[in-house]
Amino acid sequence: MIFPGATVRVTNVDDTYYRFEGLVQRVSDGKAAVLFENGNWDKLVTFRLSELEAVK
């Protein structure tokens, strides 16, 4: 189960963010908004829950 605050990895091989890890900001309607941070940039991207896996 994916909840806000969880760290997730993108599993969709066709996505630009494949294998990126980010922090879930919100979850609704089968989608999750994931925040990616890297140095001087932040990006908030929405994914279907089926495209994400929780990082242990």
Rank of each mutant, 00 (worst) to 15 (best):
A6G: 06
M1V: 09
S50E: 14
A33M: 14
A54K: 07
T7I: 13
R48I: 08
V8C: 03
V13Y: 07
F36A: 00
L52G: 00
V24Q: 00
K56W: 12
K56N: 12
T16Q: 14
E37G: 12
V8A: 03
T46K: 05
R19A: 10
R26H: 14
T11F: 04
M1T: 11
V45K: 08
D14M: 12
F36Q: 00
V27F: 04
L44R: 04
T7F: 12
L52Y: 01
T16F: 14
P4Y: 06
A33Q: 14
F47R: 04
R9P: 01
D42K: 15
Q25R: 08
E37D: 10
K43P: 05
N12Q: 06
L52T: 00
R26G: 09
N12M: 05
E53Q: 08
F3K: 10
Q25M: 15
V45C: 09
R9G: 02
G22D: 00
T16K: 14
S28L: 10
L52D: 00
A32H: 01
T16I: 14
V10L: 02
E21H: 09
A6K: 05
D14A: 12
L49E: 05
V24F: 02
T16Y: 13
V10S: 02
G30F: 06
Y17H: 08
Y17N: 04
A32E: 01
V55Q: 04
D14E: 11
G22M: 03
A33C: 13
V8E: 00
R9A: 04
K43G: 08
R26K: 11
L52I: 08
A54T: 10
F20V: 07
G30P: 02
N12E: 04
D42P: 13
L35E: 03
F36D: 00
R19M: 15
E53V: 10
Y18I: 01
M1E: 12
Q25K: 11
V27H: 01
V34E: 01
S50D: 14
V10W: 02
K56T: 13
L49V: 09
R19Y: 07
R9S: 04
L23N: 05
V10P: 04
T11C: 09
R48Y: 14
V45A: 05
N38K: 11
N40C: 13
I2Y: 04
R48L: 14
A33E: 15
L35F: 09
F36M: 06
